[in-house]
C-alpha cells in the first residue's frame, strides 16, 4: 500500500478495515447450544483469554464469518465463524463468582467444542 498522505486520512479512517469475510462457511454450533472453550495454550497470538479455557458456556449469538485472528497474526487470511458465548460468573470464578452474573466472550469456532 502507498504511504498515507494527509489528503487520504479521512477516507482511510472512514473506510476502516472490517475483519468480516464473505465466505459462506457452515456453522458448527447453534445459538443456545452448550459448548466448552478448549484448554489450549498456543505460544503465538490468540484471542481466547485464559479465564474461559476449559469452561462451559452457551452460544448467545453467531456473528458470522471473520478472519481468524490467530492465523491473521501470521499474515494468513483464514475464514472462521465467530460466536458470542455466554459464561456464567460462577462457571468462571467458582465461589467468588457473582450469582446471576455472566460474561459474554467473542470466540472463534476452533476455540470451541460441543459440550454434549
Amino acid at each position: 500500500m502507498p504511504v498515507l498522505k494527509a489528503d487520504n486520512v479521512a477516507a482511510v479512517l472512514r473506510k476502516g478495515a472490517s475483519a468480516r469475510l464473505a465466505d459462506p462457511l457452515p456453522a458448527r454450533f447453534a445459538v443456545g447450544q452448550t459448548v466448552h472453550a478448549l484448554n489450549i495454550n498456543p505460544p503465538t497470538h490468540t484471542r481466547i483469554p485464559r479465564y474461559v479455557r476449559g469452561r462451559r458456556g452457551v452460544v448467545h449469538s453467531d456473528h458470522g464469518v471473520f478472519t481468524f485472528a490467530d492465523a491473521h497474526a501470521r499474515g494468513e487470511t483464514v475464514p472462521e465463524r465467530l460466536y458470542s458465548v455466554r459464561f456464567s460468573s460462577e462457571e468462571l470464578w467458582g465461589p467468588q463468582g457473582s450469582p446471576g452474573g455472566s460474561v459474554y466472550v467473542d470466540l472463534f469456532e476452533s476455540y470451541l467444542a460441543s459440550a454434549t
Binding site: 472490517s18 471473520f66 478472519t67 458470542s84 455472566s102 460474561v103 459474554y104 466472550v105
Partner: peptide, 11 residues
C-alpha cells in the same frame, strides 16, 4: 442482571 462483554474479537 449484570452482563459483561469482553471484546475479544473484531466486534
Amino acid at each position: 442482571e449484570v452482563r459483561v462483554w469482553d471484546s475479544t474479537a473484531e466486534v
